[in-house]
Every structure is written in structure tokens, then in C-alpha cells.
Amino acid sequence: MNRSTPPSTRKPSSPTGLRQRRRGNWRRTIALDGMVLPALILTIIFAYIPMVGIVIAFQDFKPWLGFGQSNWVGLDHFQYLFSTPENLQVVWNTLIIASMKLVGGLIAPLVFALLLNEIRLSAFKRSVQTLVYLPHFLSWVILGGILLDMLSMKGLVNQVLVALFNIDPIFFLGDGNWFRFVVVVSDIWKEFGFGAIIFLASLAGINPALYEAAEVDGAGRWQQTLAITIPSLIPIMIVVGTLSLGNILNAGFDQIFNLYNGLVYDKGDIIDTFVYRVGLVDGQFGFSAAVGLFKSVVGFVLIVAAYRMAYKFANYRIF
């Protein structure tokens, strides 16, 4: 294997070490297989065996017939998803909201982690970190109610905006464009503290000696950040970013479901809420399985693409 390039963050190992490994000590690798085994068994049982259920996506599934005997309908369910302009709009909404969340959900925790990294007062640092981590634990049922109040025409946010900028109150949750904005911002607000943990753990792994050396070389803090901190975060950023691509068609059911209304259907309705409503009329397992499969395929293709690109351009194997 000539292409086995070590990850960029690693120093190339010594030639002797490589040769040793290449000789392939069978007993040593069988031990490695053994370590994967528990995860492998669990995955086969709980993930792969149930995958036979994917056939539902191609069936007119009737619960009492099971997936052995339900009628095959081919790609009908997929066609239905794309059958009308309204449904296409739903896919489009999902894509827009999810991709904005994806980008924001990556950048906000990163910036926050970098800012927090500059805090030298340990007590302050810890308190801030704990406080911003709290919203993650509130469900959208609860937050939805709170947002409805805070963002109402007479609510806190509008009061501040009116006082500061002397504008008309904004109908945040009743105007399609503002609705998307609120959905994305509130989601970032809810999750950035939790998302930052992984970056903070990553920062904690940086060897302090690197900073000391840079300091000796006379590098300022900004230069240190650019030269040491950010590069050391890039691998984890690529990993997190790539994996979240799998969610490109998940725009957040709970959140939208609790916030949307008749005024913002055109811009705020997403695939999952759509599937939910269709399912309410009739427990359409077939349709929701088809939609799930569609989302999975799209997510998987994107992940593979990102994996290839990271390997090709950054020379980094994400996993």
C-alpha cells in the first residue's frame, strides 16, 4: 500500500517502524480484530439485521400483512415526495435551513471555544462554560413556548429593538424569512455551548510547549492562534463538519414543529414535519421509510464526497 499516508497532524514515523508493521505480525492484528469484535457484533445485531426493514420504502406497507406480504409499489413513495411544487419547496426549505444550521453550528462553537480559550480567570471560564451549556438540555416544547413570548410583538426582543433602533416591531414567527432566521439562530444559540465542548477538549490536548516556544520566538497571541491553535483544531473541525453533512436533510423536527404555523408554511415547512403530518392521517410507514432512505442516501453521498476531498486536498483521513 503506497498510498498509506499518515495524517497531516502526525510526524512521519521512522522507516524501521513502518517496515515492522508492514511485515504484518498476524498475531498482533488478530488482537486488533478482537478489539473491534464487541462493537462489530452489536452493530450487526442492532443495526444491520433490522435493515431488512428498508424494503418498506418500496412497499404499500400494511401493518397486518407485514413486510413479507405487503404489495410492492416500486418508487411510488419517492415520486410522491417530488410530485408537486409544494413538496419540492419543502425539500428546498429543509436544505436551506439545515445547511445554515450546519455552517453556523460549526463556526459558532469554534469561535466561542477560541474566545473562551483566551480567558485566564479560571472561575469565570468555568462559569461561562457551564452556563452556555445549559440550553442544550431544554426541550423545544419548553423553549418553543418561551421563544413565542420573547419574540412576540410586545416581547422582550422587540422592546429592545424598538428602543434601540426606533423601528416597527418585527413579526418574527409570522414572517417566513424572519422565521428561518429565528429557527437557525435559536438552534445555534441552543447548541453552541454543547458543541464547543469537543473543541475545548481538543484545545486541552495542545502541547503547552508549543506556545512557550512561540512566545520565545516573539509571536503575538494572534499569531499563536493562527499558527498553533487553529491548525490543531482543523482535523476535529473537518471530522465534525463531515459527519454533520449526514444531517443535511434534517432541519430539526422538534424545533420547527413547535414553532411553525399557517403563516410560515411556505418557508418553514420541512421534510420531517411534512412526513409527520402525512403520517398522522394514516400511519404511512412506507412513505416515511422512503423519505428516511432518501435522506440517508443524500447524507451518505455527501459524507463520502467530503471524505474523499479531505483525503485528496488536506491529505487527512477523517475516519
Binding site: Y80, T84, E86, N87, G174, G262, L263, Y265, V278, V281
Partner: peptide, 26 residues
Amino acid sequence: APTKTMLSKGDMLDKLEKEVINKIIY
């Protein structure tokens, strides 16, 4: 029970209805 067309078109019609009704009232 929901009829055939309700299953295939029901949600679309329901959404259309809600959107228009809301927009008229507002």
C-alpha cells in the same frame, strides 16, 4: 376512515387552506 385522495392530497390541501386563511386574516 381517510379516503384515497385524502391520503394522497390531504396534506397539500390542508396546507394550502391554512396558508390562505391565515394570509387573508392577516
